[in-house]
Simulated scan of single mutants.
Amino acid sequence: MLHLQEPTPQSLGFRMPAEWAPHAATWISWPSDNELWFGFLEPVREEFKTLVTTIARFEPVHVLVRDEEAHKDATTRLAGVPGLTFHTIPLDDVWFRDNGPIFIKRGEELSFVNWVFNSWGEKFNWHKDNAAPEAVAEYLDMAHWDVDVVMEGGSLEVNGLGLCMTTRQCLLEEKRNPGFSEAKLEGYLRDYLGITKVLWLEDGLENDHTDGHIDTIIRFVNENTVVCSVEPNLEDPNHATMQRNLDLLKTFTDQDGNPLKVIELPLPQNRLELEGDRLPPTYANFYIGNGFVAVPTYGDPNDERALDVLRAVFPDREVIGLSSRAIINGGGSFHCVTQQQPAGVIWKG
Rank of each mutant, 00 (worst) to 15 (best):
P268Y: 05
P281A: 06
R244V: 08
N290E: 11
K175V: 07
E35A: 15
G349I: 15
R311P: 04
H209W: 12
T54C: 11
V319G: 01
G349V: 14
F86N: 03
T225G: 07
D277L: 15
L91P: 01
E122W: 14
G39R: 10
E157G: 00
N34T: 12
V319I: 10
A343I: 09
L279D: 00
T338S: 10
G162N: 08
R15L: 11
S229D: 05
V319D: 05
L163R: 00
W126Y: 15
T241N: 03
V81W: 03
K197Q: 11
I328N: 04
N285G: 07
G194K: 02
H213F: 11
K250M: 11
G153R: 00
P31Y: 04
L161K: 12
D308L: 14
P90Q: 06
E108W: 00
L205W: 00
T253Y: 07
T225I: 08
K72F: 08
P237V: 03
G121N: 06
E275N: 11
L185F: 13
A56H: 04
H87Q: 05
V337L: 05
H144F: 11
L193D: 00
K105M: 12
G179P: 03
I55G: 00
P301K: 13
V136Q: 03
R66S: 05
R106H: 15
N159I: 08
E304W: 08
H3P: 10
A343T: 09
R305N: 13
